[in-house]
Design a protein around this nucleic acid. Sequence first.
DNA 1: TTGAAAGCGCTAACAA
DNA 2: TTGTTAGCGCTTTCAA
Lengths: 344, 344
Amino acid sequence: MQSSDKDKAKKTRRGSGAITLADVAKLAGVAPITASRAVNTPSQVSADVLKKVRDAVHRTGYVPNRVAGGLASSRSRLIAAVVPSMVVSVFAETIETLNNNLFEAGYQLMLGQTGYSAEREEALLEAIIGRRPDGIFLTGIMQSSKGRTRLLASGIPVVESWDLTPTPIDMLIGFSHADIGRDVAQFLMAKGRQRFALVRAEDERAMRRAEAFQGAVAKSGFKEVFVDNVGASRTLMSGRQALSRILLKTPDVDAIFCSSDLLAMGVLTEALARGIAVPQQLSIVGFGDVPHVANMVPALTTVHINARSIGQQAAEFLIGRAQGRSIKQAIVDVGFSIAERDSA
Amino acid sequence: MQSSDKDKAKKTRRGSGAITLADVAKLAGVAPITASRAVNTPSQVSADVLKKVRDAVHRTGYVPNRVAGGLASSRSRLIAAVVPSMVVSVFAETIETLNNNLFEAGYQLMLGQTGYSAEREEALLEAIIGRRPDGIFLTGIMQSSKGRTRLLASGIPVVESWDLTPTPIDMLIGFSHADIGRDVAQFLMAKGRQRFALVRAEDERAMRRAEAFQGAVAKSGFKEVFVDNVGASRTLMSGRQALSRILLKTPDVDAIFCSSDLLAMGVLTEALARGIAVPQQLSIVGFGDVPHVANMVPALTTVHINARSIGQQAAEFLIGRAQGRSIKQAIVDVGFSIAERDSA
DNA sequence: TTGAAAGCGCTAACAA
DNA sequence: TTGTTAGCGCTTTCAA
């Protein structure tokens, strides 16, 4: 007798308890589908209905359940991004730009981190595909054939990045690491440097830059390049320690190419601490061009990668695909440049 | 006559086309719910069924649709995190740790960036609640009462962070910005410094640190603190420019507290470039303790925040709540410390 | 312009 | 231990 008008029908068994579109529709006196149209495609309903539904939305504080919507429409409006690490600022820049652009277009970003681990990457892929995102952004190329197969089988648009390959899974926005290694070597040789060393982290792309660097140096007949591998530790401190080791083995070193700006800053810091003149006695080149290295003293010479433009381009591709457009030029080489400053 | 066994029943109208649990179940010769149990709670099915279902999963490459599962169970296994910016490494550290811990527990991270903008934050909140995540991590305290109301109404567990308040929405992991400002002022006064300046970005929390700093200095009878507000630009360059401006107004400045390590590095860089001795002539204190500032020369004295422990604690809270546990001590002051190094 | 019906792919509840 | 049934909250399809 005193039942409110909420429970006129027989009670259902479950549910999250939140306001649903059906509640809004009932309040507005229209069918659920009409309320749906008023919310999503207002141009399809009359002004009268629009007003009633909007009122009801306001009164109830209704927030559409995108999970249900996603299931029904098989468009999740979710994009997944896979990154080795967030604390590496170049990746953070790409993700920030990607995320901002996606958000403007009504897409949400799901973030996965591999920590540079292959098995982690595999588990991540499964978790991502399980969410049925409308697109996937990969930092790097998917190396594992199992991963490639899964991705292909999922039918989800994929952007690989930060590298070049003739056989991308789908779309690609990258640059050539071999070219970078070679160009940096030539740059340093043109400066008259003669004894080279590399400081690099355990990372497949860094390895390819290193190999091209070594190749170019060898081709010009200089002594073999000394390579210091700092392993997984990508800190300023490991750069400092690397220089110490290098000086022990090759005291006559006069040029060092590092696999990241942070390592280069470490080398630079250690050099200054030891009273080694940079760039007079020692040239140092970094990789990434993190924003602030340009304004340090001495300013770091480094390889500039346009991390933000990669993020933006990826957003365009992914949104385009999610909206059913086909991307014509889906393989883009964004290139790089050597930002010549004070350290080399 | 030649129809495959896929389409024995009448064709359905829609769908994403991917392999579903029903396909797997049919192949394994069991009911869908049994296949579901084999996949999610293997202990509930017989060894025989488990094997048949696992085989079918392998043969088909089935990946469970978490969207559908989330809708049915009203547990999305999704946690949302709101951050002002990813390129600020302290936030990146927290997010990285949060994400890693969540992933281990089978949760996925959805990332939202406010860009320090309030209206952006509002839109973000709507997008996040629409996904019905199992938890929300907020960098900072939700200031807007509208936002607080929405969050409260959503019923989703919330962790606010990076700050303290007597009235959190739900859970809280933070530290006192006023205490930091006061302690840093006292630290510098104890060092015998007499003429103070602040470099700060346009940011509510930085403002509170600044005010407490000014208060402590005033209380001790020193000249008024000169404040340089660099606005939204949080770069090393803005730190350099800030020092230039400060020197113009207060040439006798001997201590500067910056609202971030990056700004402090800028001030430090500019000081060194001008031949100002640090810390002899000028003490510089940063905020955040980004990993590498400890190893620079001179090493930066800064306020250490345990960004990773915030992320880890938040993961624990959120996962606990998502699994129905109630958190007893849901307000945590993680504190801070002044990492005294060479710059002050 | 509006609505009825039928699912999206999965799991909770109940039953066998 | 396994299965049946009935939705989760929304949108597509088809019809009026």
